[in-house]
Structures are given as structure tokens and as C-alpha cells.
Design a protein around this nucleic acid. Structure first.
Lengths: 339, 339
DNA sequence: CCGTAAATTGACAGCGCTGTCAAACACAGT
DNA sequence: ACTGTGTTTGACAGCGCTGTCAATTTACGG
């Protein structure tokens, strides 16, 4: 049926092992033999059996992406980056949606994780903040790379991140620079490490500009559209309104825009709105959203590469890879009326 | 290091084969032995080696999900459904983004596909309309299940779908029932089989109500936000405007709403807008979108189940599985002014 | 208590590949 | 020619599991 290495070896007139060497691009094979083997493999339409390879070499050529995150787009981008990196090295990506309610791992889930037939795992927020989960992988000795982890988590090993604090700071500075003084901020979900960092960036930028953050100008959201609406409701309902609202992600910013629309508050005329993430949503909203572009795709790719290299090469002592971000100015922000 | 079947067998005082039987839930094992084996496996924290299993049984316990760029959310939902079904049967899901520009498979891609170490493949639009791609799988004998395929594709084997025509018909009837007579329609990407079906549903509902579809009231989009904007631009720019626009998906409907916003046309006051898919976007837009809920999650699950069963059981002659849809009425549609 | 059929269990080969190590070969210097 | 060094190749075992089929135990009727 399907050709095996033995078939190729026979056709090329060499040993199995030599064929194996050619296929794995190992050194110490003459150009002539290499050519011959490749020709034979092509002729027989040989395709290696990953199971056999995995069994013999204890490499599975599989990485897993774990997530517990309803933001389809975030995951999609990580996924795109990771699969791209995988493909270049002959790996494949297994996806595993996972529920970890209170950071507690059910035995069922534990079994699942322990049995993941992969060489490494990419962890996305908020799973990056679940020590119990990482403990499971430590026990069965499966390497993992968290994306956008907390400092706590970073200590456990290599990870990939961006500078959330700096980014939030820049956005706040931008709003201040176009004339805003009374700026509201909507905090992200508490179980994401990035939330605290972004908040910190906002607070420090305000402080640096000597601007006060008035009572009720910082509200707790959870990254959902609904929470964005709820917070906007509260902020815009009072007698004095902020002239700008900076939400910790695009979904919540969309909530703000929705509430503004309902309350007939014109954006950006009467209210500037800024988000964070640059999801597809940001460009699709009306008005399109000023936001921060995260290098999400790149993060996925880097995480995958770390795992693939870590497996094939040595355990370098890599700290956190910090990737760049951009501030994207669109139509949802403008100088305030008074200015 | 990690326990093997042999270890478990030794501890339980039985043969390897018996352990294997217990782990695979095969019949003909006494309750007593089963318990003993399970206890031993638990004690040793035994986890089966999928590679070895795959090698010995030629089952890999892996399914692949192939996609070429449709919306992140669509894929995320399919993925969620598929992983759920997989998990119940001990399978995992590999994701493979794939580019098939003109329906032509590059040799590089062909090799990738042939080597996919999986028991079956789930195909999503527009890949469902690429015969060359399915040919590849036929050659290497990997089963596949297309989701929302064309009639042409359906002939090749089992598939999963919903009744796009009926759904579009219902939506059109709904718009007519609240008083709209001049309704615009934005057609979806031509390489998706569903586009033609939705258009057909619209046309036939209009015809059934004796309503004309005037010149320029049916425009070609491609499922993108941008194309929705472009079409809306054209439709709303002329001297006579439709009182409602029905877009073939939510992204394009979002484009219509964006254009209406820019042109100060109030939605739904001056213009009703309806979409198709019920993506997260639909609920996040302002105003929230009237749309059709597709059972996307369910489709993913069914497709996975078909493949898993097809592998373990017989090749039943299953035709297309038709799943239900719902029309979701939100705030973007209302009776027209004149009415 | 025996014979027969059915249920349960085990011995063993081998899935396709890679790692180990030894054999064969090439070539330089003497 | 001969030894020493490095390069290229091959023989073979065995990774952990399941399929086959035979051995053993159990169940049951007479």
C-alpha cells in the first residue's frame, strides 16, 4: 500500500539507515547517495510514518495550544503564528480548549493533559496564571511556554510577551497630547496578568502628566463587551463626563461605543474612545477604533519556535522574549470640544 | 521514567494484552481483572504512548481541521465543536491553515497534506469546493468530511450542512412581513457554495411575495467588511434607497451599518440591516444585528463524530447531515418609515 | 463428574522508524 | 605498501503497543 523506508532503501540500493539519514537531513551522506535516495523516495511517493518515527525517537512532532479564552480572534492569531512556525520544522499544532474554573484542575483534565501526545505546550492567558496547570506539565516533563505571563509565571521558565505597561502608557500619553485631561479607564479581567500592567501604565502616565484620576474614573471590567457597556454606562451617566475613555481591550471599547451610540453621545466629537489589541473588530466598528497593535501572530510563532528548538537543541536559559507593539490611531479619538 | 504497559501488567499480575484490552475497553475481561488493571494503571500514573499505539494499530487518534481564512470566529466555533467531540473519544484535533489560491495545490502543499498524520480531515468553506484538494486525500486514503459543501462536493461522500436557502428565505420573509418592499441583497463570496444558496433563498422569497428586485439591488460582495461597505455605498448613494439591506454574512452587514453611520442614515429608523451567521460581532455592533444563527459548533462536532465513527465502525452510506438554524431578531431591523 | 462450548487470558510477532556501534572505504603522510 | 584518521555506510535491536491465534479457565447440560 504505502511505501516504507525499506522500499525506498531497496529501490535506491542502500540501507534503511542511509535513507533515514537523508530524510532527516543528517550529515555524512554523499551527494550522490542523497540524490539517489531522494529520487527513490519521490518515485515511490514515500511519506514517513509519524507514529513510527515518534516511537523510535520519542519525538512526536506535535505541539499543543491551550486556551481558555473566548476571544476567538486572539486565539486565531496565536494559532496562525504557531502553525506557521510549526510547518517550517515539520511539526503540527494540536488545539486544546481547556476550562480551569478556579485555577483548580479536575482529575479528568489532569489525565487529559498528562496524556497530551506532544513535545511542548503553548499557554495563553489566563491559563498562564494557573500554577496547578503548569505543575501538571512539570510532573510529566512536558515543556511549556506561556504567552503574556505574570512576573510570577515568568520565573518558571522561558516565555513570550509584550510590554503592556509601556503600551498603555503611550496610549494615555497620546490622549493627553491631543488635549484630554479627564480620562476614564476600564480595567481588564483580573485573572489576566496584562490587566494590572495596562492599568499601571495608565496610572503612571496620568501621574507623570500631573493629571488627577477622579473618583469613578477607573472601573473594573472583564474584557467582555458587556462589561465595557456596563462600565461606560456608569462613567457616562454622572453629571461630569470624561472626555475620553481608554478601555483595556477592543471588546470593552466596543461596549463603550455602543453605549455612547445609545446615549447619543457622538464619538469622537463628544467622547474619544481607545482600545487595546487591534482585533479585527477595531477596524469594523463605527467609528474605527484607535487601539494598540499587539504582535499576537509573532508571539505564537516565537512560542512555537522556542518549544521546537528547546526540544531539538539545548536548554538555553532564555528569559522572556519581549516583542514590539504599535499605537494605531483611527477615527475614534480626537481632541476634546473644549480644547 | 514513564510507566509502560509492561509495568502495569507486571504490577497487576496479568499479561500485556489484558492490560491493552482494559485500556481500550474491549470486551471479554472479567470485572475483577479490569479493576485490578485499572488500579495498577492509576498507581503507576500510566499514560499510553500514542505513537506506539498508532504504529501498532494504524490509528492515530488525530483529526485535522483545514481552513483557508474564513472568519476567525467561524473557525473557532467549528474548532470548539470538533475538539469537544474528539475529547469524548480520546482524539485530538490538529489545525492546518491552508492556502489554495486558484484551487491549485502546490506540490509543497500536496506533500504536507499527504503526510498529515491523521485519521480524518474536516474541510471548511471554501476548501470544500476544491476538488484537487479532495483528490489528494482520496489518493492517500484519508477520509474527509466537508462542512457546508456544494451539491457537487456532496456527491463525493458524507458531509455536514445547514439549509442556507431556507434560512435566507426566512429572513427575507421576515423583512417583508414587517413591511419592507424594497430590499437590497449583498451576495457572499463566489467561492463559497453557501453564497449561491443564500442568494437563491432571497430571490425566491421576493418572487413568492410578488416583489420586484430592482436594478442594482443585488450586489456582489466577498464576505468581507470592506466589500459590505462598498456595496452599501453603491446602494445607498443613488436617488432611491432600499428600506432594508440583507447581507449574506455579519461582516458585510457591519459594513452596511458603518456606511449608514457615516452617511447619517439611522439604523433601523431609515434603514433595516440583516446579517447571516450570528457571529459575536452581531451582538457587539450598534445597533445589534438581526441575523441567522448557524449551528456552527454543532457542525464541527458532527463532522468530527462522522470521521471518528467512520474510522472505528463501518463505512455507512451517510448522506448530508442537515442541521437546524434560527432567525435572531435584534435591533437593526424595524418596520420602514412609510409603513 | 465429564464433555463441549463459550469466555477469558496470554505468547509472540511485528508495525516503521531511529540510535548504537561496527564495518567499509577514502585519503594523507611516512 | 602500511598505518592512522576521518568519512560514509550498514546490521541490528528495540521503541510501546496491538493483532492473531492458541492456551487456559469457566459455565453448563446431562
Amino acid at each position: 500500500m504505502t511505501a516504507t523506508i525499506t522500499d525506498v532503501a531497496r529501490l535506491a540500493g542502500v540501507s534503511m539507515k542511509t535513507v533515514s539519514r537523508v530524510l532527516n537531513e543528517e550529515p555524512n551522506v554523499t551527494d550522490k547517495t542523497r540524490k539517489r535516495v531522494q529520487a527513490a523516495a519521490a518515485e515511490l511517493r514515500y511519506r514517513p510514518n509519524l507514529s513510527a518515527r515518534g516511537l523510535a525517537s520519542s519525538r512526536r512532532y506535535l505541539l499543543a495550544l491551550l486556551y481558555d479564552n473566548p476571544s476567538a480572534e486572539y486565539i486565531a492569531k496565536i494559532q496562525a503564528g504557531a502553525t506557521e512556525a510549526c510547518r517550517k520544522r515539520g511539526f503540527h499544532l494540536v488545539v486544546e480548549p481547556v476550562r480551569v474554573p478556579n485555577g483548580e484542575i479536575s482529575t479528568e483534565l489532569e489525565v487529559l493533559l498528562q496524556r497530551l501526545p506532544v513535545d511542548g505546550v503553548i499557554l495563553t492567558p489566563p491559563l498562564t496564571e494557573m500554577p496547578a496547570l503548569m505543575d501538571v506539565f512539570d510532573v510529566v516533563n512536558i515543556p511549556y511556554v506561556p504567552i503574556a505571563p505574570s512576573e510570577q509565571t515568568m520565573k518558571r521558565g522561558p516565555s513570550v510577551a509584550m510590554d503592556d505597561t509601556a503600551a498603555a502608557q503611550e496610549m494615555t500619553q497620546y490622549l493627553i497630547s491631543i488635549g484630554h485631561k479627564d480620562i476614564g479607564f476600564i480595567i481588564g479581567a483580573t485573572n489576566h496578568a496584562a490587566s494590572a500592567l495596562r492599568k499601571q501604565g495608565f496610572v503612571s502616565a496620568m501621574a507623570a502628566a500631573g493629571l488627577p484620576v477622579a473618583q469613578g474614573r477607573m472601573l473594573q471590567g472583564d474584557f467582555s463587551f458587556a462589561s465595557g457597556k456596563a462600565c461606560a454606562q456608569k462613567m457616562l451617566d454622572g453629571p461630569s463626563r470624561p472626555s475620553a475613555i481608554f478601555a483595556s481591550n477592543d471588546d470593552m471599547a466596543a461596549g463603550v461605543i455602543a453605549v455612547a451610540g445609545k446615549m447619543k453621545i457622538s464619538v469622537p466629537g463628544d467622547l474619544s474612545v481607545a482600545g487595546f489589541d487591534d482585533t479585527a473588530l477595531a477596524a469594523v466598528l463605527w467609528p474605527p477604533l484607535t487601539t494598540i497593535r499587539q504582535p499576537i501572530h509573532e508571539m505564537g510563532a516565537r512560542a512555537a519556535r522556542l518549544l521546537i528548538n528547546g526540544v531539538t537543541k539545548l536548554d538555553e536559559d532564555i528569559p522572556t522574549l519581549m516583542l514590539d507593539h504599535n499605537i494605531i490611531v483611527r477615527a475614534s479619538t480626537a481632541p476634546p470640544h473644549a480644547a
